[in-house]
Design a protein around this nucleic acid. Structure first.
Length: 696
DNA sequence: ATTCCCCACCTTTTT
DNA sequence: GGTGGGGAAT
């Protein structure tokens, strides 16, 4: 009889979710479809991890469990916890004979990364070269742009949609499984007149990708979806996994749902978890209907277990969140109840302006640290990346260490793309996107010669040796061309170990880097960080692929271990804070224009998503909550020197009902506190005169 | 054909 | 504060 000790810590509904189904002696574990509706902080991750552990304890091979999560971080956490629970439970009976379950539980990841893995494995059945490259959003947009130009759409009298819009329409159509006309009508009515041209553009886009052996994010799902349309393949893949568990199901889209249902048509072994109140990814075509309609998809309908007991937050915190959601017109009413008692009341803090807001946060954060809440247990949340700018300056000034999640543009930087481009080209000689970029680094080579070189290479069957026989333009020094051909030739050697390749490329790149970027000294560090990062990957292919599928999330991800010991304040967009929790939460700019975002006003369904976003922010807090309301709020769309701002734009979500759950506080900037003179107490002396002389 | 220089534009959220 | 586009010089 398998152990049940792992069930001891669970409450009733959790236990029901974990043990749903029945163990078959010697034949695994049979379970019908299961939906776990888990409110914020109700132990969702824990329940899911316990269910995985329960399956393993009852004889399911971890290698035959597929876990689909929203981020790679979530996948790792799930593996770690499932392993931990299993190990503890089995130690009780077997005395510690557990093999590394975490290792066997290797099929855990995002839809995209699992798709990537499956596609490389089944490539032969799909007439797909298994060495395809995965391109990120900006690469996809660039490709779209070059085709847009090639087709002559760029120079119409009436403006044709820009590259990002083109890609947005394409992606929406793919992920919602709608027709182009439907997408245009629903989300892009101002582009409706271009339907024919857009279709033509997308045909070219698809052809170009296939020609260059490139897959974009959507392709990873589309090919997987396509693979599931072939019954024999679908059967084969579906049968590989006895159990499929999906986290954050409210944020999956139609395409992902169809893949899932193709894998498990009758729902056997399928478990999905989510909370419709936390759906915040409709801009990525997520369909809340997935979770709402899940039970009725099956006959008999799926088992539904609702988790409402909140372990994370005090009741005072939950009261605020509950009040915000109570105003939502169309929701599945849930009332979160805490087991942790009342706690302290949250605060709504009115400040004069953004600078004062930053000062308040700094003061509070340090005060809490004095009261023995480490900085790491505190978080500042905001709607969009730029909202923390002023705070970051203030934190730096006061020497408060912080890490910012979300909105990191490390991979977007031109010099990083240059370096990665070389590796991507070496990895996939047909990757014209990467080739195009790399070739143009050389002096004298622009779009025209780059294209010629690529065509030359193509005629030679994509062997880098053919670069030697290409005649570069006269303006290109011979040495430069020779260095390139030699570099590509040695990188393409399959015998060459991955270690050291990045430093080779860096050495090659240095002179172009210095030529291209005036302030290359400030950028040099990025290149070093990239090289450091590359050491964590076992191969070039894994490096370039996984970097696009799971880009570094925060500055700390790059610097690796050392900073982990230090204490630092966390700054994060709300989207990036999903699923996490902190002792104290400060929500910035709860003002109309930020909450809801100025881009969302006008569309009721978008406003509702903003409300859920605020709900997600509030429910991250365990003990303390501060909702910040700056009276003077700068508008974003204006020139650098502009001073446009609005007064009194209190968020429409801060209704009387919500305000009743919060203590009002007003904070003024201490006189002189923001005065730089006061801070220059350190005894540094400057010879300004000498510096001025050196300028000339 | 390439490069250089100036200007406009922009900044929601992410796999 | 950086990037991408457009126009002029080489």
């Amino acid at each position: 009889m398998p152990t049940t000790s792992h069930l001891d810590r669970l409450n009733g509904p959790q236990r029901k979710a974990v043990t749903h189904g029945e163990a078959l002696p010697e034949k695994g574990y049979r379970a019908g479809p299961l939906l776990i509706v888990a409110g914020a902080g109700t132990g969702k991750t824990d329940t899911l991890a316990h269910r995985v552990a329960h399956l393993v304890i009852n004889g399911v091979d971890p290698a035959r469990i597929l876990m689909l999560t929203f981020t790679r971080r979530a996948a790792q956490e799930m593996r770690r916890r499932a392993h931990e629970i299993t190990r503890k439970a089995l130690n009780d009976t077997l005395g510690g004979a557990t093999q590394s379950i975490a290792q066997r539980l290797s099929w855990a990841g995002t839809f995209h990364s699992v798709g990537n893995r499956l596609l490389r494995h089944y490539a032969a059945h799909l007439q797909l070269d298994p060495h395809f490259s995965v391109i990120d959003r900006s690469d996809a947009a660039d490709l779209m742009d070059s085709l847009r130009e090639e087709l002559g759409f760029a120079e119409r009298e009436q403006r044709f949609p820009r590259k990002d819009t083109c890609l947005g329409i394409y992606s929406n159509r793919v992920n919602t499984r709608s027709s182009l006309a439907e997408v245009l009508e629903r989300h892009y009515p101002w582009c409706a007149q271009w339907g024919g041209e857009l279709a033509q553009l997308y045909r070219a886009y698809v052809e170009q990708k296939q020609h260059a052996n490139l897959l974009d994010y959507d392709d990873l799902l589309l090919y997987w979806h396509g693979m599931m349309a072939e019954p024999r393949l679908a059967q084969h893949i579906g049968a590989h996994f006895d159990h499929v568990l999906v986290d954050e199901f409210q944020d999956t889209n139609r395409l992902q749902a169809e893949i899932l249902y193709a894998m498990k048509p009758d729902g056997a072994g399928l478990t999905v978890v989510g909370d419709d109140a936390q759906a915040i990814y409709s801009f990525r075509a997520a369909a809340v209907e997935n979770i709402l309609g899940f039970p009725e998809r099956f006959t008999p309908p799926a088992e539904v277990v609702t988790l409402a007991q909140n372990y994370r937050s005090t009741q005072q915190v939950l009261d605020v969140a509950n009040a915000v959601m109570a105003e939502a017109p169309r929701q599945h009413r849930k009332y979160l109840l805490s087991i942790r008692g009342e706690g302290a009341r949250g605060r709504v803090v009115t400040v004069d302006d953004l600078q004062t807001q930053a000062e308040f946060i700094c003061t509070e954060v340090l005060k809490k640290r004095e009261a023995s809440v480490p900085l790491k247990r505190q978080v500042v949340l905001f709607r969009s990346g730029s909202h923390s700018d002023i705070l970051e300056v203030e934190l730096t000034k006061r020497k408060v260490p912080f890490v910012k999640y979300g909105g990191l543009k490390f991979l977007e930087a031109a010099h990083i793309k240059d370096l990665l481009g070389v590796l991507r080209w070496a990895d996939n000689p047909r990757n014209t996107l990467a080739a195009f970029r790399t070739l143009q680094l050389l002096p004298g080579i622009g779009p025209v010669h780059a294209r010629a070189a690529i065509e030359h290479l193509e005629r030679a069957g994509h062997s880098f040796a053919a670069l030697k026989t290409f005649a570069p333009p006269q303006q290109t020094p011979e040495i430069d061309w020779r260095r390139l051909t030699e570099l590509m030739h040695s990188l393409a050697d399959p015998q060459r170990p991955w270690a050291g390749q990045l430093s080779m490329v860096r050495e090659w790149y240095q002179r172009y880097f210095e030529r291209l970027y005036e302030q290359h000294h400030t950028r040099q560090g990025d290149l070093e960080q990239l090289e450091l990062l590359s050491g964590q990957f076992p191969s070039r292919e894994r490096f370039v692929t996984e970097l696009t599928l799971d880009p570094p999330h925060a500055t700390s991800d790059l610097s690796g271990r050392p900073t982990l010991d230090d204490d630092y304040l966390v700054l994060s967009t709300i989207h990036s804070a999903k699923g996490m929790e902190w002792d104290s939460v400060y929500v910035l700019n709860v003002v109309d224009g930020s909450f809801p975002s100025e881009f969302s006003t006008g569309k009721p369904e978008l406003i509702e998503e903003e409300r859920r976003l605020l709900y997600v922010a509030l429910t991250r807090a365990q003990n303390e909550l501060a909702v910040m309301v700056p009276l003077k709020f700068h508008l974003t769309k204006q020139a650098r020197t502009g001073d446009a701002h609005v007064y009194g734009g209190r968020s429409r979500f801060m209704t009387e009902r919500v305000l009743k759950t919060l203590d009002p506080v007003t904070f003024h900037s201490a006189p002189g506190a923001s005065d730089a003179l006061q801070d220059s107490s350190s005894t540094v002396t400057l010879d300004v005169g000498a510096r001025l002389r050196e300028m000339w």
